[in-house]
Write a protein that binds this DNA or RNA. Structure first.
Length: 192
DNA sequence: GAAAAGATCTTCT
DNA sequence: GAAGATCTTTTCC
Protein backbone atom coordinates (compact mmCIF):
# COMPACT_ATOMS: atom_id res chain seq x y z
CA UNK A 1 0.00 0.00 0.00
CA UNK A 2 1.31 3.40 -0.95
CA UNK A 3 1.13 6.05 1.73
CA UNK A 4 -0.78 9.19 0.83
CA UNK A 5 2.45 11.09 1.29
CA UNK A 6 3.94 9.33 -1.73
CA UNK A 7 0.92 9.12 -4.01
CA UNK A 8 2.64 11.49 -6.39
CA UNK A 9 5.27 8.83 -7.02
CA UNK A 10 2.74 6.10 -7.62
CA UNK A 11 2.71 6.66 -11.36
CA UNK A 12 4.63 5.11 -14.31
CA UNK A 13 8.38 5.49 -13.69
CA UNK A 14 8.89 7.90 -16.56
CA UNK A 15 6.34 10.26 -15.05
CA UNK A 16 7.79 9.80 -11.56
CA UNK A 17 11.27 10.54 -12.89
CA UNK A 18 10.08 13.84 -14.32
CA UNK A 19 8.47 14.78 -11.04
CA UNK A 20 11.64 14.00 -9.11
CA UNK A 21 13.68 16.46 -11.14
CA UNK A 22 14.09 19.62 -9.10
CA UNK A 23 13.20 17.90 -5.81
CA UNK A 24 15.47 18.20 -2.83
CA UNK A 25 17.38 15.53 -0.95
CA UNK A 26 18.20 16.17 2.70
CA UNK A 27 20.90 14.05 4.28
CA UNK A 28 21.64 14.35 7.99
CA UNK A 29 24.96 13.11 9.34
CA UNK A 30 25.47 13.70 13.04
CA UNK A 31 25.05 17.46 13.43
CA UNK A 32 25.51 18.18 9.76
CA UNK A 33 22.75 18.70 7.24
CA UNK A 34 23.50 18.33 3.56
CA UNK A 35 20.97 19.47 0.98
CA UNK A 36 20.99 18.86 -2.76
CA UNK A 37 18.67 19.34 -5.71
CA UNK A 38 18.10 16.44 -8.09
CA UNK A 39 19.10 17.48 -11.61
CA UNK A 40 19.48 14.18 -13.46
CA UNK A 41 17.69 10.82 -13.19
CA UNK A 42 17.06 7.58 -15.06
CA UNK A 43 13.91 5.45 -14.95
CA UNK A 44 13.98 1.69 -14.44
CA UNK A 45 11.22 -0.83 -14.02
CA UNK A 46 10.55 -4.52 -14.03
CA UNK A 47 9.86 -4.73 -17.77
CA UNK A 48 13.28 -3.24 -18.53
CA UNK A 49 16.09 -5.73 -19.35
CA UNK A 50 18.62 -3.27 -17.93
CA UNK A 51 16.88 -3.08 -14.58
CA UNK A 52 17.97 -5.00 -11.51
CA UNK A 53 14.36 -6.01 -11.02
CA UNK A 54 13.97 -7.57 -14.47
CA UNK A 55 14.66 -11.10 -13.23
CA UNK A 56 12.51 -10.91 -10.16
CA UNK A 57 12.72 -10.09 -6.50
CA UNK A 58 15.87 -11.04 -4.59
CA UNK A 59 17.35 -10.15 -1.23
CA UNK A 60 19.46 -7.51 -2.92
CA UNK A 61 16.77 -5.64 -4.84
CA UNK A 62 13.97 -6.23 -2.38
CA UNK A 63 13.78 -2.55 -1.53
CA UNK A 64 12.89 -1.69 -5.10
CA UNK A 65 9.79 -3.88 -4.92
CA UNK A 66 8.43 -1.98 -1.97
CA UNK A 67 5.92 0.85 -2.22
CA UNK A 68 6.87 4.33 -3.39
CA UNK A 69 8.83 6.46 -0.94
CA UNK A 70 11.71 4.15 -0.09
CA UNK A 71 15.37 4.31 -1.00
CA UNK A 72 17.21 1.53 -2.82
CA UNK A 73 20.98 1.61 -2.55
CA UNK A 74 23.30 -0.89 -4.23
CA UNK A 75 26.98 -1.39 -4.78
CA UNK A 76 28.29 -1.48 -8.32
CA UNK A 77 31.65 -2.82 -9.46
CA UNK A 78 32.51 -3.41 -5.85
CA UNK A 79 33.47 0.23 -5.49
CA UNK A 80 30.62 2.62 -5.96
CA UNK A 81 27.20 3.04 -4.40
CA UNK A 82 24.16 4.22 -6.34
CA UNK A 83 20.83 5.53 -4.99
CA UNK A 84 17.35 5.00 -6.34
CA UNK A 85 14.02 6.44 -5.28
CA UNK A 86 11.50 3.59 -5.30
CA UNK A 87 8.25 4.26 -7.14
CA UNK A 88 5.02 2.41 -7.81
CA UNK A 89 3.15 -0.03 -5.60
CA UNK A 90 4.36 -2.81 -3.31
CA UNK A 91 5.30 -5.85 -5.40
CA UNK A 92 6.21 -4.02 -8.58
CA UNK A 93 9.94 -3.42 -9.04
CA UNK A 94 10.42 0.10 -10.30
CA UNK A 95 12.51 3.07 -9.31
CA UNK A 96 14.40 6.15 -10.38
CA UNK A 97 18.19 6.28 -10.30
CA UNK A 98 19.66 9.55 -9.10
CA UNK A 99 22.52 10.33 -11.46
CA UNK A 100 23.43 13.86 -10.48
CA UNK A 101 22.54 16.54 -7.92
CA UNK A 102 23.29 20.20 -7.38
CA UNK A 103 24.62 20.99 -3.88
CA UNK A 104 22.45 23.50 -2.00
CA UNK A 105 23.76 23.22 1.53
CA UNK A 106 26.76 21.69 3.29
CA UNK A 107 28.79 22.05 0.13
CA UNK A 108 32.06 22.25 2.01
CA UNK A 109 31.31 18.94 3.70
CA UNK A 110 30.43 17.29 0.39
CA UNK A 111 33.62 18.48 -1.22
CA UNK A 112 35.63 17.32 1.77
CA UNK A 113 34.06 13.86 1.55
CA UNK A 114 34.64 13.64 -2.16
CA UNK A 115 38.07 15.23 -2.22
CA UNK A 116 36.93 17.22 -5.24
CA UNK A 117 35.28 20.58 -5.68
CA UNK A 118 32.85 22.21 -8.06
CA UNK A 119 30.67 20.24 -10.43
CA UNK A 120 33.07 17.30 -10.31
CA UNK A 121 31.85 16.53 -6.79
CA UNK A 122 28.35 15.33 -7.66
CA UNK A 123 28.04 14.80 -11.43
CA UNK A 124 27.74 11.02 -11.41
CA UNK A 125 25.77 8.30 -9.57
CA UNK A 126 28.73 7.04 -7.56
CA UNK A 127 29.84 10.57 -6.79
CA UNK A 128 26.43 11.56 -5.49
CA UNK A 129 26.49 8.76 -2.94
CA UNK A 130 30.02 9.53 -1.87
CA UNK A 131 29.26 13.22 -1.46
CA UNK A 132 26.08 12.60 0.54
CA UNK A 133 27.52 9.71 2.54
CA UNK A 134 24.89 7.28 1.27
CA UNK A 135 25.64 3.58 1.81
CA UNK A 136 23.75 0.33 1.57
CA UNK A 137 22.74 0.76 5.19
CA UNK A 138 20.16 3.18 3.82
CA UNK A 139 18.69 0.69 1.36
CA UNK A 140 15.03 0.22 2.18
CA UNK A 141 15.02 3.46 4.16
CA UNK A 142 11.78 5.45 4.32
CA UNK A 143 12.65 8.75 2.67
CA UNK A 144 10.09 10.62 4.67
CA UNK A 145 12.30 10.25 7.73
CA UNK A 146 15.85 11.29 8.79
CA UNK A 147 18.68 10.76 8.12
CA UNK A 148 17.69 10.81 4.46
CA UNK A 149 14.61 12.65 3.25
CA UNK A 150 13.07 13.67 -0.02
CA UNK A 151 11.31 17.01 -0.20
CA UNK A 152 8.84 17.54 -2.99
CA UNK A 153 9.16 20.59 -5.16
CA UNK A 154 6.78 21.84 -7.86
CA UNK A 155 7.05 19.90 -11.09
CA UNK A 156 9.29 21.59 -13.63
CA UNK A 157 7.79 22.95 -16.86
CA UNK A 158 8.13 20.66 -19.85
CA UNK A 159 10.51 23.12 -21.51
CA UNK A 160 13.09 22.68 -18.71
CA UNK A 161 13.29 18.88 -19.00
CA UNK A 162 15.52 17.16 -21.54
CA UNK A 163 14.96 13.50 -22.44
CA UNK A 164 17.75 11.28 -23.75
CA UNK A 165 19.22 7.78 -23.93
CA UNK A 166 20.58 6.20 -20.75
CA UNK A 167 24.22 5.95 -19.89
CA UNK A 168 26.54 3.22 -18.67
CA UNK A 169 24.43 0.16 -19.45
CA UNK A 170 24.47 -2.41 -22.22
CA UNK A 171 20.81 -3.31 -22.63
CA UNK A 172 17.93 -1.26 -23.98
CA UNK A 173 20.26 1.69 -24.28
CA UNK A 174 18.07 3.28 -26.92
CA UNK A 175 15.18 3.63 -24.51
CA UNK A 176 14.72 7.31 -23.75
CA UNK A 177 14.46 7.03 -20.01
CA UNK A 178 17.05 9.51 -18.89
CA UNK A 179 15.80 12.92 -17.80
CA UNK A 180 17.76 15.98 -16.82
CA UNK A 181 17.34 19.69 -16.27
CA UNK A 182 18.11 21.89 -19.23
CA UNK A 183 21.36 23.88 -19.06
CA UNK A 184 22.29 22.59 -15.61
CA UNK A 185 26.04 22.43 -15.02
CA UNK A 186 25.81 19.49 -12.66
CA UNK A 187 24.31 17.10 -15.20
CA UNK A 188 26.81 14.38 -16.03
CA UNK A 189 28.17 14.36 -19.53
CA UNK A 190 28.30 11.21 -21.68
CA UNK A 191 31.85 9.94 -21.99
CA UNK A 192 33.40 10.80 -25.27
C1' DG B 1 30.96 -24.33 -5.35
C1' DA B 2 32.79 -21.60 -9.16
C1' DA B 3 32.53 -18.22 -12.76
C1' DA B 4 30.97 -14.12 -15.06
C1' DA B 5 29.04 -9.69 -15.45
C1' DG B 6 27.85 -5.29 -13.69
C1' DA B 7 22.79 1.34 -13.73
C1' DT B 8 31.03 3.47 -12.45
C1' DC B 9 35.13 6.38 -11.59
C1' DT B 10 39.93 7.38 -11.93
C1' DT B 11 44.24 7.39 -14.01
C1' DC B 12 47.39 6.88 -17.68
C1' DT B 13 49.03 7.41 -22.61
C1' DG C 1 40.58 7.45 -25.82
C1' DA C 2 41.41 3.14 -23.36
C1' DA C 3 41.91 0.21 -19.60
C1' DG C 4 42.31 -0.94 -14.62
C1' DA C 5 40.48 -1.10 -9.98
C1' DT C 6 37.70 -4.02 -6.95
C1' DC C 7 33.82 -7.03 -4.93
C1' DT C 8 28.92 -8.24 -4.68
C1' DT C 9 25.08 -10.72 -6.64
C1' DT C 10 23.41 -13.89 -9.74
C1' DT C 11 23.53 -17.90 -12.46
C1' DC C 12 24.98 -22.24 -13.96
C1' DC C 13 27.17 -26.94 -13.34
Amino acid sequence: MVKDEWKWLNVPVEAAARRLLGCELVRQIDDLTLRAKIVEVEAYDQADPASHTYRGRTARNDAMFRSAGHAYVYLIHGIHNCVNIVTGVEGYGSGVLIRAVEPLGGIDEMERRRGWSGIEATNGPGKVCAALGITRQLSGHDIGLPPLQLIRHPELPESEIITGPRIGISKAVHELRRFYIKDNLYVSKPRT
